[in-house]
Simulated assay, not measured.
Amino acid sequence: MRSTFGEHGRYLLTVRDGKADCVPTDREPDLSLDVSDLGSVYLGGTAPSTLVRAGHIRPHRPGAAILADALFRAERSPHCLHWF
């Protein structure tokens, strides 16, 4: 993933045996996205493929958004019991 706003750089996300690791890399990105879109994906409730269709995330290889959907999918949708 590569951020296009604020923090610029490329990061490699790997997941093995249910554990994720994210490190800087020079490798070509599978997806390019803004840090605010990364927040939406990371905090839940918005699938990467939805943001691709909306033009916020740019895939660089076929299947990248589908894989990102699987990596960021949560068992439960985010929910906040307190309004502020």
Rank of each mutant, 00 (worst) to 15 (best):
V35D: 08
V41K: 02
H60G: 04
A54P: 02
F5T: 15
D37C: 15
E7S: 12
D26N: 02
A74T: 15
S77D: 06
G45W: 14
R10A: 13
I66N: 09
L33A: 01
D21V: 13
R76C: 07
R76I: 07
V41I: 14
I57F: 06
P78W: 03
V41P: 01
G9K: 03
T46D: 04
L13T: 10
V52E: 11
R10H: 09
D69C: 01
R76W: 06
S32G: 10
T4R: 11
H56N: 09
H60S: 10
S32V: 12
F5P: 00
E7N: 11
R53T: 12
T46V: 14
R73A: 15
L67C: 03
D26Q: 04
R16H: 13
L13V: 12
D69Y: 08
D69M: 03
M1D: 01
V35W: 05
F84L: 06
V15P: 12
Y42D: 09
C22R: 13
L33I: 00
A47I: 00
T46K: 03
P78N: 04
Y11S: 11
T25R: 03
G9I: 05
D21A: 15
D69H: 03
F72R: 06
D37M: 07
G55Y: 08
A47N: 00
G55T: 12
S40K: 11
L67R: 07
G9M: 11
R2N: 05
R58S: 12
G18L: 08
Y42I: 14
C80S: 08
G55K: 12
P62F: 05
L67V: 12
R76Q: 13
P24K: 00
G18F: 02
A54E: 15
D26L: 06
T46W: 09
A68N: 12
P62W: 00
C80E: 03
W83T: 14
V52A: 01
S36R: 13
S77E: 02
E75M: 00
V52Q: 10
V52Y: 02
L71I: 13
P24E: 06
L13Y: 10
P62G: 03
L38M: 03
D34L: 02
P24D: 05
M1T: 10
L31G: 00
L13R: 09
V35L: 10
M1E: 04
P24N: 00
A70K: 12
P59N: 06
L33R: 02
S49G: 13
V23T: 13
T4Y: 01
T50C: 01
D34H: 06
H56T: 05
L31K: 00
S36I: 14
G63T: 04
